[in-house]
Simulated scan of single mutants.
Amino acid sequence: MDYNMTSFYTFVLLVLFLSSLNLVSSRHRKLSYGGDNGDLVTNLPGQPPVDFQHYAGYVTVNETNGRALFYWFFEAMTKPEEKPLVLWLNGGPGCSSVGYGATQEIGPFLVDTDGKGIKFNNFSWNKEANMLFLESPIGVGFSYSNTTSEYAQLGDDFTGKYVPELAELIIDRNNNSSLHIDLKGILLGNPETSYGEDWLGVVDYAWSHAVISDETYKKIRRSCDFNSSDPWKNEECTQGVNEVLKQYNEIDINDIFNGWTQSKRSVIPIYKKLISVGLRIWLYSGDTDGRVPVLSTRYSLSILDLPITKQWSPWYNEKEVSGWYQEYEGLTFATFRGAGHAVPCFKPSNSLTFFTSFLLGESPPSTR
Rank of each mutant, 00 (worst) to 15 (best):
F133A: 03
K116Q: 12
W125S: 05
D114Q: 10
E135T: 02
F109E: 06
F142S: 07
Q153I: 04
I138L: 05
S145C: 11
Q104G: 02
D114W: 07
F123M: 05
S149H: 10
T103R: 07
T147S: 15
A129C: 09
N126A: 01
N122K: 14
I106V: 14
N121F: 09
V140D: 00
G107P: 02
Y144R: 09
E150P: 13
E128A: 12
F109G: 04
G115V: 10
T113P: 01
F123Q: 08
G117Q: 02
L134N: 02
S136P: 01
Q153Y: 09
Y100V: 04
Y151N: 11
S149A: 14
L134R: 02
A152V: 09
Q104Y: 00
S136A: 10
N121R: 09
T147V: 11
E128Q: 12
F123I: 01
W125I: 11
G107V: 03
P108N: 08
N126R: 00
T147Y: 11
E105K: 05
T148H: 14
I118Y: 04
F109I: 04
G115L: 12
D112V: 06
N146C: 12
Y151F: 15
S149T: 15
F123Y: 15
G115M: 10
G99T: 07
T103I: 01
G115F: 10
V111M: 14
N130C: 08
G107F: 02
T147L: 13
E128W: 00
P137H: 03
T113L: 12
Y144M: 09
Y151Q: 10
S149K: 12
P137E: 01
